[in-house]
Amino acid sequence: MPGSVGIVSDSLVQARGLRKRFGRFEAVRGIDIDVWAGEVFGFLGPNGAGKSSTMRMIACVSPRSDGELQVLGMDPDVDGPQIRGRLGVVPQQDNLDTELSVRDNLHVYGRYFGMSRAAVRARAAELLDFVQLTDRADDPLEQLSGGMKRRLTIARSLINDPELMLLDEPTTGLDPQARHLLWDRLFRLKQQGVTLIISTHYMDEAEQLCDRLVVMDGGLIVAEGSPRELIARYSTREVLELRFPPGDEHGWPETLSDLADRVEQLPDRLLLYAADGEATLAAAHRRGVQPTSTLVRRSSLEDVFLRLTGRSLVH
């Protein structure tokens, strides 16, 4: 853990009735948040849910329209620079300087935090090692892959030893291998006591990384808890997925509704929420259901989101 953070409450971020308006459009419509030291906190929701607007307010680069917000015990409107000095920000779109080398990107950025040249040099070397880019240190940025650039952005955000890191959709657009490498780095940061706030529209990412998360939809928080709690509260232990040939799915939801706690009909399949998926499948078969394929799986945040908003999160 970094030394004393010097605030009264334990929450690094505290929002009450937080709102953000752009003209007549309200992107964030009054939310309450508490982010505790040492945890990984997630904003989960589809594009346009208000995640990025919230992240930008917490990052002190976008003034709030209404409500209260404290970051590291300070008011962003008053102490923006002090707060930003202790944050690490990974924006949704990389904004590395493509006309500088890998190492220069870190050096230049570190200097903005008031660090001495020697401190920046030492820290940059350490960070390049951490994100496994040491052998690319002097390459121009153009030669880096998307995953490498993302890792460099994360290294850059760590240059000032932040107490709180904000990652806005950190793995969007990366291939599976690059994602897992990135998750591994973030997990190690968490182990070292860095508090992380992550926004994502990927369920697996939220389940992998977050201790606690809020589900956002239409600028509001629709649920809050740990992934496990949310699944327990808004879903069942298991889910049975039934796929039917196109045109054959009519009527089945009614026939099967009493076999499960809840039945959801998606365009291509039927989801039956039940504690015991295999037993439900057997019961369904006894009623003459003949799906083209079946799958019994554990509930995920995807199911939670579907339950909360009535919409699938996957586009």
Partner: peptide, 28 residues
């Protein structure tokens, strides 16, 4: 990689000190 170390907090640059860091970045 090696575990990261965490240094002490440093004061935020103000006024011309901050401006000069911007100039330095452009110079790089």
């Amino acid at each position: 990689g090696e575990p990261l170390t965490f240094a002490d907090r440093r004061p935020v640059l103000a006024g011309w000190a901050a401006v000069l860091r911007v100039v330095e970045g452009l110079w790089t």
